[in-house]
Design a binder for these strands. Structure first.
Length: 251
DNA sequence: CTCACGATCAGCT
DNA sequence: GCTGATCGTGAGG
């Protein structure tokens, strides 16, 4: 790549969180590594509502040291750690101190795939997963999950708070090609007794292979009915209708 | 391919 | 103490 992809403007993130999630699909996530740029196309994201709205959001009970970035200006990185030191990356949205953000769940490598592969392999024990990655190919598995995405791109808590609208920084988001078909489905990995676990706030590129877990509709596993989003989001320009993914192709 | 299991730890109550 | 916005393993179709 010759020039660095131009960052999305702040105003992109200062909108309804579902519209931001929808429009992030197809956008580019760019990571500066020395002189090289790692570039990936987003194929799966999840919206998280804010304080007092979305019980599954880290911000639900208000600001804490960990999730402080969710309450700050839009377009900044909220990076948190999960099990075994893994990390997940979010972008703050809206910017009205309500604590809303979009979790970046999966992407497809466009540039620097071998560096991403090396980053994934680093620290991975011998086993089937290591062997599969060492065999080469399978690029769509390199960033196919929120923690894998961070591993492959070398993102950790040191990047918490970084401005994702700044192409001079270590990490930013840039415009990509518009995605034609988007699927909406319930979010992954939430406590099934949470009131919001059935909300279809996960957006996927319909024909992408690199999604983290489109396998089975959660509804088939006894989870609560996928619920409509709150009426305030109705004219949000994003999700036409929440349809379960099943196989990619039901558009 | 799908599924169930549990490692291992930061963050919060 | 208890709880995960997860991942890789290993067994089974």
């Amino acid at each position: 790549m010759s020039a660095a992809p131009r960052p999305l403007p702040r105003a992109f993130f200062e909108r309804d969180v579902l519209a931001v999630a929808r429009d992030l699909l197809g956008s580019l996530l760019v990571r500066r590594r020395g002189r090289a740029l790692l570039v990936a196309r987003l194929v799966e994201v999840e919206a998280y509502g804010g304080q007092g709205v979305d019980p599954s959001a880290h911000s639900f009970r208000g600001e804490t040291p960990r999730c402080r970035v969710m309450f700050g200006p839009a377009g900044h990185a909220y990076v948190y750690t999960t099990h075994q030191g893994r990390c997940c990356l979010n972008v703050s949205a809206v910017g009205d101190r309500s604590g809303q953000a979009v979790l970046l769940r999966a992407a497809e490598p466009l540039a620097g795939a071998e560096a991403m592969r090396a980053a994934r392999l680093d620290g991975l024990r011998d086993g089937p997963t290591r062997a599969r990655l060492l065999a080469g190919g399978r690029e769509h598995e390199l960033l196919s999950g929120p923690a894998r995405l961070c591993l492959g791109l070398g993102i950790d808590r040191a990047l918490d708070g970084v401005d994702l609208c700044d192409a001079a920084g270590p990490l930013w988001l840039a415009q990509g090609e518009r995605v034609a078909r988007v699927l909406w489905a319930p979010r992954i990995g939430l406590n099934s007794k949470s009131a919001s676990c059935g909300w279809a706030w996960r957006a996927l590129v319909a024909d992408a292979r690199g999604v983290s877990a489109p396998r089975r509709p959660e509804a088939a596993r006894g989870a609560p009915e996928p619920r409509r989003r709150p009426a305030s989001h109705h004219e949000a320009a994003a999700p036409p209708r929440a349809r379960l993914p099943g196989r990619a192709r039901t558009a």
